[in-house]
Design a protein around this nucleic acid. Structure first.
Length: 130
DNA sequence: AATTTGACAGCGA
DNA sequence: GTCGCTGCCAAAT
């Protein structure tokens, strides 16, 4: 899992986000083992969207905003995809992170084999369950 | 091999 | 909360 490229790890993590919840780019980067690579995650998803089928709509930015350059349709399309997925999107194209942000389960973290320091960083930013 | 890019994020004001 | 500016990083050119 963690001996593969960052690119591959990202594509493996996205489908772990439960339907009806969302994750931030930074959160995905962290789970992929590279803190600070949020922007790179966005690029990867943008490119992959043309060829791979994944629940990309579940990844949004830290302020709850949708993807300005969402593949084939921008925020309008992104909103549709999210709502079809069970996540309400406000009229200003934002999501209530307080309610819908994913708190990764401990089992997921174990499965990702995160280093202790990354787990600490994660726990600090997103109260991890159990 | 060097540079540019961009579905981002943090910070101070 | 906003705005502007700077830092980031992996991929694509």
């Amino acid at each position: 899992m963690n001996n593969t490229s960052f690119h591959d790890r990202v594509l493996q993590i996205v489908p772990l986000i439960p339907q009806g919840r969302v994750a931030t780019y930074g959160q995905v980067a962290l789970l992929a083992g590279v803190p600070g690579a949020a922007q790179a995650v966005g690029n990867i998803l943008h490119n992959a969207a043309y060829t791979v089928d994944l629940p990309y709509q579940r990844v949004i930015n830290k302020s709850g905003g949708l993807a300005r350059g969402y593949t084939n349709g921008g925020v309008v399309r992104h909103k549709q995809d999210l709502e079809a997925d069970g996540v309400p999107v406000r009229f200003d194209y934002t999501v209530d992170l307080k309610q819908y942000l994913w708190n990764p389960e401990k089992t997921v973290l174990d499965r990702l084999r995160l280093s202790p320091d990354l787990r600490i960083e994660l726990a600090a930013k997103f109260s991890v369950n159990r």
